[in-house]
Design a protein around this nucleic acid. Sequence first.
RNA 1: GUGCUCGUAGCUCAGUGGAUAGAGCGUUGGCCUGCGGAGCCAAAGGUCGGAGGUUCGAAUCCUCUCGAGCACGCCA
Length: 621
Amino acid sequence: MIRDLIHDIVAKSLVSLRESGKLPMIDLPAFDVERPQIAEHGDYATNAAMKLAAAVRATGEKANPRALGETLAAHLRETVDLVPAYDLIESVEVAGPGFINFRLKPAWLLRQARQVVDDAAHFGAINIGRGQKVNLEFVSANPTGPVTIGNGRGAFIGDTLGNVMRAAGFEVTKEYYFNDSGAQIEKLGRSMEYYLRLALGESDTVKPDEGYFGPYYENVAQRMLDAGAHTSVSTETPKPRSRRKKSPEAPTEAPDARAMLTLPEGERAARIGKAAAAVIMSDIRQTMARLHIEFDIYFNEADLTTSGAREEGIEALRAAGFTKEEDGALWAKTTAFGDDKDRVLLRSTGGPTYFASDVAYMRNKYGRGFERLILVLGPDHHGYIGRLKAISGMLGHSVDDVEILLYQLVTIKIGDEVMKMGKRLGNAITLDELYEDVGPDVARFFYLMRSSDSQLDFDLKLARKQSEENPGLSVQYAYARAASVFRKAADAGYTAQEYEKANASALLTDPTVPANAREHALALMRQILRLEEIVERVALAREPHHLTRYGMDLSEAYHRFYETNPILKAGTDVAQPTRLARLQLMRAAQVGLARTLTLLGMSAPERMEREQIAEPAKQAE
RNA sequence: GUGCUCGUAGCUCAGUGGAUAGAGCGUUGGCCUGCGGAGCCAAAGGUCGGAGGUUCGAAUCCUCUCGAGCACGCCA
């Protein structure tokens, strides 16, 4: 990465200056290399001189950051001239309170176009993760209904973060935890029993006081009956564990819903609930798949209960001395690791709590060799951070090996009208409905435009627009436009081989290229090369929203380049080497756009369908 | 009551302790009519909620304060 290279150059210069006595013998301070906000300040800047001044002052000596900057800059200029590998730097200047600004060589920048094109499939990939095994859990919505637009935020954040962390060299497993056992499943079972009986014509059936109701559940009931109709009758308890191992994608064998209605009172609700949950789980998977959210593992909580893992987890805590009995219940001493109160593992009535499953699940994850566990959770899980970290501590890991990423609420806005919603309000919009409305790509982009810490107002009116005002589409438009130019170029007899191997510095040597065209070409290259820095930042800070911002910046730079650097435009006379150079830059931009879109989980379309524009007659002949 | 998040342009929001605080949408003005076409260029618009503090330097860190949202079960 260019930034690291510059950091390295500066660090070496500081050491060298200290050895030659031009700096006092002090511990060299940490310093930053970053992109200045203002283009006139160059490509990169470092605050090394100011940090150095502060370090010198700390020893009681006087120090002038500006003067130190001059000393450092002078040494840097010499170094850059001497070392061939540093040939990318055009100038080193001191500015403001003591910043040192670096400017990159135009010829070097343009040379990178070919590198980018040659590395099309992996451009942007870095290796800061060094293969660290990371478990990334997200969505994990209960299989008691369709996924809502609220859950959706976790879905897109998790999926994209996973993509980017992989590109950054982490070994990421994306995981969905299905809470498919326990009281809520029984509640679902009671609701479904009602709908099943209703569907079978038992008009005297009684609706439970509370539960899951609505057309969706009627539909689930119908599908349960349809599926059971052509399956052998079996009320045997299924073995979820072995089934999952066989094939996580295989549809569950459909138990006969009618037969389940005859089960004894005690097990009926649980069995029906489980069967219904299986149907809902397959719906959820389908929702995820069509939005291009990919999980490596769908983990069923039931596996923890049937395998005895939950009891083993409790035993492990007991053996480690983190349990206590009080008021007839068994508690975990989570306060030992910073939680604000201890948590119950086994209720005084005997049954294990949800928390006991959490313990078993985390133990399972560590058992699979993950070094770091990331959980993407909704705003209602704020209270869980302390206890989850405490589990990590009790299991002998650092509390910091568990990271909780909380995202804030989602609302839908149409024009100026903000719709508040929630399951409780009964007007929760499902992710499927949003998919139908705006498609997977725009949905993904809009969800990722905001920092997770901010509330998300999803602007449906803007999302529905099929023009470049729609920021989600603008990145794809840029890609498609480039594709169109390449098609035209092929028609005109240019081969990819020809321009991909061309020398882009023709843009510097051709006197007919206007200055602003050259500037926009260089600006485009700078923007393309920024992708690696974005990948690093997203991966380390766990903030996927920077990628959408970058996508907008890149497509804007692309458009400016496109407007000022004609290639095949009628009526323009462009020298052949310049034409090839521009094609190469455009290809590099397309690579950057494609990589950005891919990381965002969006498609990179060769053609875009536009809204039907009223374009009468003319085209007819 | 306690805790967490947020408060930045008309709206929705970026902003890694650094220089003149940015983008999209919206608004206004100009250009353009076809390499992808609803495009391009430009402008206006800010006491970064408020007050102290730390620092060479604060939208960013600390304290207090005001406002908004959410969470605080032997529920799952």
